[in-house]
């Protein structure tokens, strides 16, 4: 589903965020991406959604080589990937319903279908009945669940999360992880960047570990170029 082949990323500042990273995620796999802050976790996720582009190497996402993608093609790649952010990235002047509906509106889905799917997504994160509220009226955990509902509302085959439990207490944190686990069980490929080892022990999933831009655990064996 996701394949990195000898991918490197050097920022314009000269900083090497990723060095020769190779790994793959199978369809319907749930994998944790760990490493200290600054190890390159965020950069790796950004490469998958093409917020950043790789300096070297090949990237394949959902059977598509995204190493060379034109500006016009990027939005369609992003529609196949649901992303959950640590800071939620919700629109605070719109209701929960409108926030979750956004990916469908953007993709031009009809009104009735949108309404149905938004309700289904909110149901999965247990927020049905709060669709008329504004994000600011919700707790941190609830806001993150809105973010998850938005990420899955158009049923993407891939779900990425960057420190989704970063600001939450352990109980809420477990709740959020359980939601991700459910989507994995529904057949979604899930990649979660986290620094909380508790989840890894609890859910017993494969782990990718980054250390100063190098993949030190879980990667594919590759001959050094």
């Amino acid at each position: 589903m996701i394949r990195f082949a000898q991918v490197s990323k050097r920022y314009e500042s000269g900083h090497d965020a990723l060095k020769n990273v190779s790994f793959h995620l199978d369809k319907q796999e749930m994998v944790f991406l760990i490493g200290r802050s600054g190890a390159g976790k965020s950069t790796l996720l950004k490469l998958i959604t093409r917020v950043e582009s790789a300096t070297r190497g090949q990237l394949i996402v959902n059977e598509r080589n995204i190493t060379r993608l034109t500006r016009r093609q990027v939005p369609y790649l992003r529609r196949e990937i649901g992303v959950v952010f640590q800071d939620h990235k919700l629109l605070h002047d719109r209701t929960v319903f409108d926030n979750v509906a956004l990916p469908l509106v953007v993709a031009g889905v009809g009104h009735r279908e949108t309404s149905r799917r938004v309700r289904a997504a909110l149901d999965k994160v247990d927020l049905l009945g709060k669709e008329r509220l504004y994000p600011i009226m919700l707790s941190g955990g609830e806001q993150q669940r809105v973010g998850i509902a938005r990420a899955v509302v158009n049923r993407p085959p891939i779900l990425l999360a960057d420190e989704p439990t970063g600001n939450l207490d352990p109980e809420l944190s477990d709740e959020i992880m359980d939601i991700f686990h459910q989507f994995y069980q529904f057949g979604v490929t899930v990649l979660i960047a986290t620094h909380e080892h508790r989840h890894i022990d609890r859910l017993n999933k494969r782990v990718l570990e980054l250390e100063q831009g190098r993949l030190v655990r879980g990667g594919d064996e590759q001959a050094e170029p």
Binding site: P75, R78, R79, V83, L91, V106
Partner: peptide
């Protein structure tokens, strides 16, 4: 700005 950024992240085309 923020809204445009988010729209781009969730796959809105430039045209949209």
């Amino acid at each position: 700005r923020d809204e445009i950024e988010i729209m781009k992240l969730i796959g809105a085309t430039e045209r949209f």
